[in-house]
Computed example of a mutant assay.
Amino acid sequence: MIVLGSNSEIAQAFVERVLDGGERFKTLYLFTSTPEVTERFAKHLEVRFMQHSEVVFMDLTQNIDFSKWDYIQSSLLFCATGYLGVGTDEGLYNRKNTEKIVDVNYAKLIPVLNYFAEKMERTRQGNMIVLSSVAGERGRQSNFIYGSAKAGLTAYLSGLRNYLHSKKVHVMTVKPGFMDTKMTEGLPLNPALTASPKQAADGIFRAYKLKKNTVYVLPIWRLIMCVIRNIPEFIFKKMKL
């Protein structure tokens, strides 16, 4: 199993849910930009599940030497890579903030997903589970830099799913709403609309087994985003969302 963004609480909860379900892997590849932190999770998996893991360095703000990953092969990939950055109220014209949001959520991530998708296409088997965001469904003034990157990712996953279907590789898009994680720490989130990493992992695992195409972590977000997508533009542009 390949895990991109392995320090994400959702990624770690999903890995544990998969292992709790009885699946085991020759090697579980934990991709991370902070190997020293990820090593602790790898040791936890070894002790609790007797699952061998390998920590692999990946920093999407730097150039990547894909040849170093030629030996890595798996039929299951889970991607929780993401960077929220500073919202547009504070960071709209902050170039470094904008570049990192776009790089981590889209520009530098797509070549990585393509790299592993090609490996799965060659073997004609595999599942790719990738976290996008409800923020990508309509640009809103509070976070449209982040939302635009996630919109691009969602469109990419839709096309990749279409392309790989005949190659026996399934691509699932996950759209979390509010999540109780380090990335959203300090934000005023509505508890009724916020999921825990364990809730997310359980829902994603069920969807993975059913080979769903797109899944919202909390079903209420499907309705919320349907409403937001359908607000007429002449009204929407005057709203503070």
Rank of each mutant, 00 (worst) to 15 (best):
G186Y: 05
T61N: 15
W69R: 03
E99V: 15
D70V: 06
I101Y: 11
I231H: 05
G152W: 00
K100T: 14
E99Y: 06
M179H: 06
L84V: 10
F49D: 01
G85L: 10
V15Q: 09
N7D: 11
V215K: 07
Y93C: 14
Y29D: 07
K209D: 01
V15K: 05
K168Y: 07
Y208V: 02
V3N: 11
V56D: 03
V18N: 02
T32Y: 03
N97S: 09
T194V: 05
Y106E: 08
K198T: 12
A117E: 09
K238P: 04
T98K: 07
V55D: 00
L77K: 03
D65F: 03
T98Q: 08
Y146L: 03
T38G: 03
N94K: 14
L76H: 01
A42F: 00
N105D: 12
R138P: 01
E121L: 13
R122T: 10
G21E: 09
M225C: 13
E118H: 13
C79T: 10
L28N: 04
V55E: 00
I2C: 11
Y146H: 06
K168W: 00
N143C: 12
L60T: 05
Y156G: 12
E90A: 12
Q199G: 10
P35Q: 07
L189D: 13
V56G: 07
K182F: 00
Q51S: 11
I204P: 06
R206K: 15
L189R: 13
S75D: 15
L92S: 10
A195Y: 08
L30Y: 02
V86D: 13
P188K: 06
L4Y: 07
L160G: 01
F78N: 03
S8N: 12
V3W: 05
F78K: 02
K238Q: 12
I101P: 14
G5V: 07
K212R: 15
R95D: 14
K108T: 12
V217S: 04
I101L: 12
H44K: 12
P232N: 05
N230D: 10
F41N: 01
V174I: 06
V47P: 00
